[in-house]
Every structure is written in structure tokens, then in C-alpha cells.
Amino acid sequence: MAYDKPLPVPDPVTRPFWDGLKAHELRVQRCRDCNDAVFYPRAVCPHCGSRNLAWTVCSGRGTVHAFTIAHRGTPAAFRSAAPYVVAMVELEEGARLMTNLVEVEPSPEAVRIGMPVEIVFDDVTDTVTLAKFRPR
């Protein structure tokens, strides 16, 4: 069955991020002036205002910062997938990104804040790869 969930449409600034995932590489910007990680990808550093940003490749390891388990009220395309975990993962490099946790039971007993996780590259279509995470 064709993938029917929402797909991102890259813009000129975010394109390297999405191209990176397609190549199974997690790329996050880092500010050359304040050295903070920047996510989502931007034309300007939200920490210091610099335009001097560089792409870096991340390890794909991080920890769960926060999560919810979606049971009801999901977007229509996700209804049959419920319950599923939506989480914020904090990368070793410092950025936080929204993701799904996979290969784990969707329950507050199985998922823990602070739990170590690693990236899973989910090739959802021929052109789009999503960054998901599983316990490590």
C-alpha cells in the first residue's frame, strides 16, 4: 500500500537535512560563532543571531527528553497505527528533534525519559527517509 502519512517538502535551507537522511546520515547545523547545535535547520542561529552555520554529521545516539503515547485524536492517516510513541529525542550533539520511538512497547512502563536511543533510518518512500529512534 502506498505510504499515506504526511510527508515533508524540503525548502532550500532544509534540503541538506533531508538529503542526509536519504543517504542514511543525520545532519544537524552547528553555529560557527556560538558553537550551539541548531535544529530545525535555519538561515540564522536562534541562539546568537549569526548566519555562520555549518552542517555536521551526528552520531544518531541520544536520549528520550519527553514523550506521549498517542491513542486517540490522531491525524487520520495514523489512526491504524495507534497506540504509538511520539517523542522528543535529545541528541548527543545537543539538538532536540521530534520523532517516533520504534521497536518498543508503546506504554509508559516501557518508555522512560532519559532512556538511551539510537537512530533508525525509515525509508518511507523512494524519496523521503524519516529519522526514527529505538532503544539502545
Partner: peptide, 9 residues
């Protein structure tokens, strides 16, 4: 791009 693909209700 950065939230909708993950189905947050």
C-alpha cells in the same frame, strides 16, 4: 517538515 510526519495528535 519536522512535526507532521510523526503523527503528533
Amino acid at each position: 517538515q519536522f512535526e507532521a510526519p510523526f503523527g503528533l495528535p
